[in-house]
Design a protein around this nucleic acid. Structure first.
Lengths: 146, 146
DNA sequence: GTCATATAGTACGATATCGTACTTATCAAG
DNA sequence: CTTGATAAGTACGATATCGTACTATATGAC
């Protein structure tokens, strides 16, 4: 009656559920009409780098480039990013954060403070202790995709 | 220049990226027309329990019940689940796995074998060592939602 | 230079996801 | 037994996501 399921599958399963629950909390902190992917792109531009092309962003998120076009149009409409021509390739663009975009991203993170504090109170130090190994896992998966 | 971002936020950020990469691998192992949510529901019916109502499933995945109706119709069309009337509530249904549904779910997991093996080879024991703490985190988040 | 091939982004149609409104059934109060 | 309020599921319209086809530019062979 015991299920012969690899621990790695269980691992990714837990990751998926945690991500669902965390995304739901994040979504609940977003203004009407703003979606998690909008925030995710802004956060990526801060975390990784500014000035990426739409295609690079699409690849970073493993999403079709048409989806990125759509997401970026929402960010542009709210003036959270600017798109400038790519000086080294006239087919292409570069996406730059605006001050307002950076501020919105920071504000969302601050608004998560109480939620994060509640988790920290219940499971003190847990996330911090897992962070290095999760980063290793993320870096490995990221490096080993086609 | 150092970013004052809580470790818990970084933690969920890593979780999100890992989930994206893992979902992309899972999607690549699915037959044409079958989506990750289809698999996720089947897997939930195996892992947690059979005979859940559509509403219970929707709540488990934090998704609108209309979305679950749609996903279940795809599973029913492929005869991977059966919906029977709920004996204790005539408004409601119960969702039961079929043998074919169970077989499909197992087959997908087996098809992930090589992918999982590659991760295990690169980072031996890592996922197993993180599993208990991730489970605690998942259980906490799951218990502390409204 | 011309030509063929490949690439970045978009237009457009198909499907998935979501929110609102509706139908039917349940339940509690009387 | 009504009556009114709540809940499960669905119909339907709006938006998000995705795949294909197209345009404009880039790149390499010659």
């Amino acid at each position: 009656m015991h299920e012969d399921i690899p621990n790695l599958f269980r691992f990714f399963n837990e990751i998926g559920i945690i991500n669902q629950l965390a995304s739901a909390i994040l979504q609940s902190r977003m203004p009407k009409g703003v979606l998690v992917p909008h925030f995710t792109v802004l956060n990526h531009l801060v975390r990784v780098r500014d000035g990426a092309t739409p295609l690079e962003l699409a690849q970073a998120f493993q999403t079709p480039k048409t989806t990125m076009t759509h997401t970026l149009s929402g960010l542009r409409k709210r003036a959270w990013v600017e798109e400038r021509p790519n000086p080294s390739d006239a087919r292409s663009k570069q996406v730059w954060l605006t001050k307002a975009g950076r501020r919105f991203r920071d504000r969302v993170i601050r608004s998560l403070g109480p939620d994060l504090a509640a988790v920290e109170r219940a499971l003190p130090g847990l996330a911090s202790s897992l962070l290095p190994d999760l980063t290793r896992m993320r870096e490995h998966l990221d490096a080993s995709r086609d």
